[in-house]
Amino acid sequence: MEAYLLNLFILISIYSILGVTLNFIMGYAGIYSLAHAVFFGVGAYAGSFMAMHFNASIFVTLPVAMVAGGLLSLILALPALRVRGEYFVAASLGLQVLAVTIFSEWKGVTGGIGGLIGIPPLDIAGFEIFKPSQFIFVTVVALVIILFIINRLVHSSFGRSLRAIRDSESAAAAFGKNVPLIKTISVVISSALTAVAGVLYASYLSFINVESFMLDTSVLIMAMVIIGGTGTQAGPIVGAALLLILPSLISYLDFLPQTEIGSIQQIIYGLGMALLMIYRPGGIVGRKKHSETGKE
């Protein structure tokens, strides 16, 4: 039971990082990405590649993963600079589909469909972290640091510029804000921090394959942010905790078929997303009427 809870908390904190970083571009910059799992995957693969072939120290794996995620995100930033939300949804959906093909085909780095086995544990200045009871501290600390970084960004002049862009791009441009630059920086920061979650995830499980980084994962992360509350600090974490506890709650209900837990979980959050948008667009944590999250 204790091992089970530890595992659950570790996953919640990793997914919270994913939610918090997605919320940063979705809630504050109005960029709705269906490709968040791509950067999660890039971080995981890049970190594992370094750890398996060069050095497992986090001072090697984390920077490499973050740079890889950040650089790749420029591909995503490019269309985001040009166009409105609906175009961007399409572009990110396309990128997600393409990335899954690359993850399953680029055998030299990703191990193909079979994935990578035997990824070394995290190495922090010579200490190898492989016990879950130690790992939970690492993930929670990582989450707190990332929350802190994003909190600082949101409350700086940069964050105000972001919200200005979300609410009205032309007004922000008229006030002399460099809209393309601000959007690009926010996408790069978000993706680089997402890659951190990838490194943690890979070294925690010591096994990864493409199935963790498919469209379903991007959708799950988006659902966490939306259900928790877009554009709020605590929302993505609440959402991550809720959606990850949900499958275990469902498995307690004996009358539901155990083989369909995954489907039932998705049905519940799919319905949850639709109902929230009708009755409470700001999410669980968000305000009732959503002056904070919407963009025409």
Binding site: G30, Y32, R84, G85, E86, V89, V219, M222, A223, I226, T230, E260, S263, I264, Q266, I267, Y269, G270, L271, G272, M273, A274, L276, M277, I278, P281, K289, H290, T293, G294, K295, E296
Partner: peptide, 28 residues
């Protein structure tokens, strides 16, 4: 949704959620 305010985002998310429901119900 449009009665209150029809932002692109709210409509998209609701529609997306329903899509997930249909996919899984059909899958079951």
């Amino acid at each position: 949704i449009q009665r209150d305010e029809g932002s692109f985002f709210t409509v998209f998310v609701a529609s997306f959620g329903i899509g997930i429901v249909v996919q899984n119900v059909v899958g079951m």
